[in-house]
Simulated assay, not measured.
Amino acid sequence: MDRLQGMRVFVRVAEGGNFAGAARALGMSPAAVTRAVAALEAAVGARLFIRTTRSVKLTDAGGRYLEDCRRILSEIAEAEAVAAGSTATPTGVLTLTAPVQFGRLYVLPVVTAYLGRHPAVSVRALFLDRIVNMIEEGIDVGVRIGHLADSGLSAIRVGSVRRVVCAAPAYLERQGVPETPRDLRDHAVIGSTATGDLPEWRFGTDRRVTVTVHPRLVCNTVDAVLAAALDGWGIARLLSYQVASAVAEGRLRILLDADEAAPVPIHVVSPEGRRAPAKTRAFIDLAAARLRADPRVNPVG
């Protein structure tokens, strides 16, 4: 009998406390169970059980070996499930989350391509400008922008974006162009509760330069901040992908780029990691490939 089968028999006997019960559970004869345990004891060179006419108890060596066997068998089962799932057809409902504008601009095209490839899957997309508890809310995969807390999520970095200061040309013509971060104190600033960086804006790759801003206008959505900046009301701080089209069209101008903080990472995250079902792994693979190839999302490669 092979070693792994011997381990399975040993674990079953240890958990049930008797050979007869293990034999019934495994569909083996009691004699075969006894031989399997004896062969395992011979292979490891230690007694695993103390047998009496009324009971079967683990030895000290058997107790330690039991934990190792459980771990080994669990890892093998997981590896087999992953291997089987890698060739399985994605099915079911995939629930995902991403920030609102990033989801609309970059994740939604991935979703539609994914649906085209996998006709047995449907998608529930939640585009939200807040960090959700993926386990509590039943979410399979998410796209997160920013440094990740130690959440236990499996994460794949797919790119990065810049945090930029910008304003409309009309505003700069009226109020002048700030030359240093501290010049922002003399300008109209548009704040955002969605970015989580009020009341301080940090600059420099080491984030050591800190400017306390006092915005007269504070909005709770990126779209509102962007609209106010485009209207020429003041200076805003947004992520580079959020202003890319307006900058390209000349409707916004990026300021203080020499003082920018380090790029902000983008990750695709999942609570299940390697044990995720085929529907989730297929989406993660596609999203990672698409986002890494997009220079707007991954300007630093």
Rank of each mutant, 00 (worst) to 15 (best):
A14N: 12
A81F: 07
Y65S: 00
V37W: 03
V82T: 12
L26R: 02
M28E: 04
A23Q: 02
K57M: 07
R47W: 05
G45C: 11
A42I: 03
V44F: 07
G17I: 00
L58K: 06
E80C: 01
R12P: 00
G85N: 14
R3G: 00
D68C: 03
L26N: 02
R3E: 09
A39G: 06
A83I: 11
A77V: 02
R35L: 12
R71Q: 07
T34Q: 06
R24L: 11
M7I: 08
A79H: 07
A22I: 12
R71V: 05
L40Y: 12
V33E: 10
K57R: 15
S55N: 13
E15L: 09
G17Q: 00
L66I: 08
E15Q: 12
E41R: 10
R3A: 01
N18G: 08
L58Q: 08
F19K: 02
V13A: 03
G6P: 02
Y65W: 11
R35S: 10
S74I: 02
A83G: 11
E78I: 09
A25K: 03
S55A: 15
A36H: 07
G85H: 10
C69P: 14
G45R: 08
Q5T: 13
G85D: 13
I72K: 14
A43L: 08
D60W: 07
K57A: 08
A32V: 10
G16H: 09
A43N: 02
